Simulated assay, not measured.
Amino acid sequence: MKKLTIKEIAELTGVSTATVSKVLNNTGRYSEETRKKILDVVQEYDYRPNAVAKSLRTRRSKTIGVIVPDITNEFFAQIVLAIEKYCGPKGYSVFICNTDENGEKELQYIKELELKGVDGLIHLIGSDELFNVETNLPVVCIDRKPMAHNAAFITSDNFQGGYLAASELIEKGCKKILLIRDYRVGHPTLERQKGFKAALKEKKIPFNEEEQVLNVEVGIEQGKKAVQELIKNGNFDFDGVFATTDWLAFGAKLALEENGIKIPEEVKIIGFDNINLAKYSSVSSIHQDKEAMGQKAAENLINRIELNIHTNDVIKLPVTLVSRSSTSV
C-alpha cells in the first residue's frame, strides 16, 4: 500500500496540512468531525509519521542511549527494565548498549549514539574516560560519581549500606570481620567500605585493613577461591564476612560450607544488592532499590532534555537491611 504524506491526507480530507498536523500531534483546535475524518484516513491507509523528518523539525529524536557494563547481571538488568518502563509512556525509545566492561567499547558506543542523534545518555558504572569525552548531550550517571562532566548522579546510600552491614554482624556477636570487596577503585565500593569501618570504629571493634580486606574480581568463583585460599593457608580466623556484592557473599558461603564451617553458627555472612541470588541462598543483604534508580535516572534525563536543565544533580536513594539465615540462627 502506498505510504501517505501529510499533504496527501490533507487533500483526501479537504483540510489544510496544518490541521492534519494538529490532529496527529493532538495540539491546537479542531472539530470532532474533522478529527474523525482525518483519523479514518490514517487508519485506512495505515499512516505512520516519518520519525527522521520529525526529529529534524523538532531537533529531538525521542530516543535515549543506555550504556550498561553487563546486561546479564541482574542488578543492571533490573535498572535497565525500570528505565524502559518509565521512558515508553513518555514517548521515548531506548537504545541499550552492553559494553562487557570494556572501556574502548564503551567510548565507541557513546560516539555511535551521538551520531544516531539520541537526545541523551544514561550511564551505568563505566570508565572515568567518559568524563573526558566532549559531548553536549545531557548525561545521567548511575552509581558512578561524575568527575569532570556536567552530569546528574543517581546512587544508593552506599555509606549507610556498609554501616548497616557491619552493625548487623556486630549485633549478632561478630568480633573479627572479613571484608571482601571489588578490587577496582569505584565510588560505591569505597563508600561501602567507609560505612563499614565507621560502624566498627563506633562499636570499638578492631580492624586491620591489611589482614581483613580481600580485593578480588567480582564473581561467585572469585569470592569462593579467595576464601578457599585463606582456609587452605590457615589464615581464616573470622567470625563474620561482609561482601560488597551478593555474588562475592555467595562465593564465600560456598567455600565455608565445602570446608565444614557452619553458617551462621561459626561464621555470619552479609552481602550487598539484594538480588535473587541472595534471596534463594538465604544470604542477608543490603537492599538497593533498583527500580527507583532506573526510574529516577530516566525522569532526570527527560527533564534535562525537555526543560534544558544542566546542573550536577545528586540523588541518593535509601538502602535497607534484609536479614536472612546467614546472620541469624
Rank of each mutant, 00 (worst) to 15 (best):
V23F: 00
I122M: 08
D128Y: 12
K62R: 14
D70F: 07
R324C: 02
G117P: 14
G173D: 00
E104K: 15
A278Q: 08
L248V: 13
L277D: 00
D70L: 08
K296V: 00
P264S: 06
T19Q: 12
E258A: 09
D143H: 03
G251V: 00
N274R: 07
S16I: 02
T58C: 09
I275Y: 01
M1L: 02
K224S: 14
V314K: 03
S328T: 14
S55R: 00
E106Q: 07
L137P: 03
Q288F: 01
I71H: 06
T27Q: 10
V322D: 04
F95Y: 15
V118N: 05
N308S: 12
G162T: 00
E112Y: 11
V213L: 12
V52A: 10
V20S: 03
T135M: 03
K224L: 04
A297K: 01
R304A: 01
R324D: 05
V216G: 10
P206M: 01
Q108C: 15
G186L: 10
V41Y: 09
I286H: 09
L230N: 06
H123G: 15
R60W: 11
D289I: 07
V140K: 06
V216E: 11
E44V: 10
I96K: 00
D40L: 04
V322C: 06
G120L: 07
A252V: 12
Y30K: 05
E210Q: 07
I270K: 10
I305G: 05
T135D: 02
V140R: 02
K316Q: 02
Q288N: 12
L164V: 14
D237V: 13
L56F: 08
D119P: 05
K279S: 12
E171Q: 08
H287Q: 13
G103H: 13
D246H: 06
E266P: 02
F75W: 12
I64D: 03
R144Q: 03
L178T: 06
E168F: 04
D46I: 08
E84D: 10
K37G: 13
V80T: 04
A298H: 09
K36L: 04
G161Y: 02
I38K: 09
Q228M: 13
S323K: 15
S93C: 12
L179Y: 07
V319R: 13
A18P: 06
L39P: 05
I122A: 08
R48W: 13
A148D: 09
V41P: 01
G28A: 04
V68T: 15
E209G: 08
D70S: 10
V133S: 06
V94Y: 15
L277Y: 02
K22N: 02
L130Q: 15
E258S: 11
E129M: 11
K197L: 10
K197I: 09
E299R: 12
N158R: 00
S284D: 05
T5M: 05
G186N: 14
W247Q: 14
T17C: 03
T245Y: 11
A243I: 03
Q212W: 11
C87I: 13
G173T: 08
L24K: 02
I71E: 08
T244E: 09
A166C: 01
W247K: 15
R59K: 15
K232Y: 11
G173W: 07
K145R: 10
Y280W: 03
G195N: 05
V15D: 02
